[in-house]
Design a protein around this nucleic acid. Structure first.
Lengths: 276, 276
DNA sequence: CAATACTATTCCAACCAATGAAAGTCGGCT
DNA sequence: AGCCGACTTTCATTGGTTGGAATAGTATTG
């Protein structure tokens, strides 16, 4: 044997090749490995996806489980825990708006019996906060907790139109992402559309791909007059005409806004008259 | 001057009195400071409630904000972020059951126009996963994301009745907590009630305090036959008689169970016959 | 307007919690 | 029995973490 027996002492313990990421970030990255498709994961899967050695993952996961951010199933796999959900339910832009909006969404849903959506903007995407759907009714669209592009969805356009100018420009500068099923608009048309949305309080999008549908969305304002959410209805193309839906959607959105403390002006583009 | 000038060197930097809590735990404790009443907090508030020095809190909060677990408002305060809500929406026992149950809850709500609740058990309490309420209708009860006691609520009794024997005993051994507005039952009566709940699939509770209401709850089973949630309806006392509500609640709960892959047996307490 | 009180942020040297290779354990499969 | 994969425990090393102190910013008060 060419192996050196050396001594009884452990050869090379604690020899970290090198690292350098805050522990908190690592812990959070362990939460981030979960997704719509990955709702229950084993230790080794989590370690692999999060890019860290199993022992490290185990140690961090143990803390997360102890707190309730994760739960362990009988088969040893981990899932997101109720405790995390509980804290998350305090998110003003998550459950916050939802809580206030829900009764109004229900009314709209009950009358129309079509998908009713509520979304907020997170960075460059829309996040679906709520979706009411009759169990029998129409096709699927987006999942609650899921994300949707800003430029090619009705809620996205409403949120984009309500964002600050600087952000809008940044988005518009980016090349379109060619969302399948939605005709992508050239930049100029997007600008005109956003302007229309601001003026009319309504965005409309036709998509063909998951199925032929029409979405009509309207902005929800907070007390400061900022657009905090977008409310929309999704109907099969050809069922109810959009111009019939628009007033209902707009009225519902305004009702929610009012409950958020927003005092609607006569119309945003009429204010300039008062300057004369 | 009795003060020792000593040298120019910094006197006593980095002199930690001592500590010893995992960083992850500290970060999580910063999430835990949020509550129904505290949805937006300043740095110093968070540091105070979490019991740590401001610089430490700031450093950890910075990581949480970077990831999206927290968001910073214009006024400098922090709130729970949408990203956290997004991950939490993957919680099987949180949004998971909710997603499946919602259409059925809506049906029940639409027919009755009374509060419809969905709850799961987390440790020794019930956590409210969903609540449908008409905006005009009745008084408030519990908040979505909030907690309710097991022994003195209808959903709680259902969840307790469906828990494993060992856990039930542990709860029963504890002295009752004297929930105001609910007549507290002696241990024997609780046992009988739990037995009844298992047999009939219905729990019923009258409370007087937030207002005079009757709650009727029924268990939701998963594919393995475990009770994973409780579904209930809350009506003003004296409106609809409970025995009229029970079938509707039970039917809704069974519909949800079926969608979770549960194959209902004829009746749990009849199975013994097949042994003959 | 200075003084006071508070919160937020930056700095940094000491140090302890975090680290991960290695080894041990468990369970399944051949 | 032997192999393989996932999970868990151990432990010497060390770099990320720590919090007092200093600084900057903000609101309140005399």
């Amino acid at each position: 044997m060419t192996v050196q027996p050396d001594t009884e002492t452990t050869p090379a313990r604690g020899k970290r090749p090198k690292q350098g990421e805050p522990v908190v970030d690592r812990a959070l990255s362990l939460l981030a490995v979960f997704s719509d498709r990955r709702r229950a994961l084993t230790l080794s899967e989590m370690a692999r996806y999060a890019g860290m050695p199993a022992p490290t993952a185990l140690r961090l996961i143990a803390r997360l489980v102890a707190w309730g951010a994760l739960e362990r199933l009988d088969d040893g796999r981990y899932v997101v825990g109720v405790r995390l959900w509980e804290v998350a339910s305090l998110s003003p832009r998550g459950h916050g708006v939802r809580e206030i909006a829900l009764p109004y969404l229900e009314d709209l849903f009950e009358v129309t019996r079509h998908h009713v959506l509520l979304a907020v903007r997170d960075n460059e995407e829309a996040v679906l906060i709520e979706r009411l759907s009759s169990k029998d009714a129409t096709e699927v669209a987006y999942r609650v907790g899921g994300r949707a592009p800003l430029r090619s969805t009705a809620v996205g356009l409403v949120l984009l139109a309500g964002a600050d100018q600087q952000f809008q420009e940044a988005i518009l500068r980016k090349p379109p992402e060619n969302e399948p099923g939605v005709p992508d608009m050239p930049e100029g048309q997007v600008r005109r559309t956003l302007s229309d949305v601001r003026r009319t309080g309504i965005a409309m999008i036709r998509r063909s791909l998951p199925s032929r549908t029409v979405s009509v969305a309207s902005p929800v304002f907070d007390a400061q007059g900022s657009v905090v959410a977008a409310l929309s209805i999704v109907v099969p193309d050809g069922s109810t005409p959009p111009n019939v839906l628009a007033p209902a959607v707009r009225a519902t959105a305004r009702a929610v806004s009012r409950n958020l403390g927003h005092h609607a002006e006569v119309s945003p583009d009429v204010r300039t008259h008062s300057q004369g």
